[in-house]
Nucleic acid binder design. Structure first.
Lengths: 149, 149
DNA sequence: GGAGTTTCGGTGACGTGTCAACAACATGTA
DNA sequence: TACATGTTGTTGACACGTCACCGAAACTCC
């Protein structure tokens, strides 16, 4: 239907790109689940938490950093807490808030997962893109993602 | 190079590209829901069904064409049938199968949705990519998506 | 023809993400 | 101080996708 309104080149490029938008994240997520029992969302939470020296982050700040809704992170943090990957603590700066804290178990899982994940990203994506293509991809990605919502 | 880790260039490019992988489909899906009350999945089913002259497609064939699981399409088709967008008919060729049929209502919804969707894809994506970049994107996308699963 | 295998669509359970609503708390203003 | 307004995290309802599994039908090979 949209064929009538897009040129043939645009149509084919959009179809191919849309296929990549679906297939690439799915493949990497499948590798991650198989290798480490983590979802892509789990991995993002764990790796972002690990960036802070004390492995602690206020929920609202973590949500903003990952561009998640607070609701989504609240749901997901509850599930990750039940699995022992993270803890919840009251925020001493703000009685409404809470701090999410990467547990030792969570950190261990992340350390086990990371090298496999890197191999996955390499074999599924980076190995098949030249340095020039990669820098072009980065530029285009930033340009489009930075557009207003 | 130590393939267990990412270099700085790779890291930044992967971060930027991953941000696009999340943001672009989300924005286009939001436009579609706002303009036409359809999800991206709805639109894909409707537009693929409309490609056949009789607007009919066996469930397994439609699932294969869209690279969906049969289970996913079965669930989704049930919801779309409840909304009157599609019908289900027994397959005369195979008593196990069923045909999905785009209703007149479904076709009308698709015809209303299509132009808005094209505007969305243009304004969110195509307008911000040159012809050279687009053809490179298409080539890279095809190369990576065509890799074995 | 008949036994074993494969493929078909459907189902229930589960994890997930969105949305609207909420209570608790913080902040700004008079 | 007191009141209005905004923010924080949580919750419940719902839509969605995956997985394991099922019965029915088709296919294979003897």
């Amino acid at each position: 239907m949209d064929t009538a309104w897009l040129g043939a080149d645009e149509e084919q490029a959009w179809r191919a790109f849309r296929r990549l938008l679906i297939a690439l994240p799915a493949r990497i997520a499948r590798d991650l689940a198989r290798d480490s029992g983590l979802s892509a969302a789990d991995y993002e939470v764990l790796s972002t938490l690990s960036e802070k020296p004390d492995r602690r982050w206020a929920l609202r700040e973590l949500a903003a950093k990952m561009e998640w809704s607070r609701s989504r992170l609240s749901h997901h943090a509850a599930r990750m807490q039940a699995r022992g990957l993270i803890d919840k603590e009251p925020d001493p700066q703000d009685a409404r808030g809470c701090l999410l804290h990467l547990t030792d178990d969570g950190f261990a899982v992340l350390e086990q997962a990371a090298p496999h994940h890197v191999v996955s990203v390499r074999s599924r994506f980076l190995e098949h893109v030249s340095a020039d293509e990669l820098s072009m991809l980065r530029e285009i990605s930033t340009r489009i993602a930075d557009l207003p919502d």
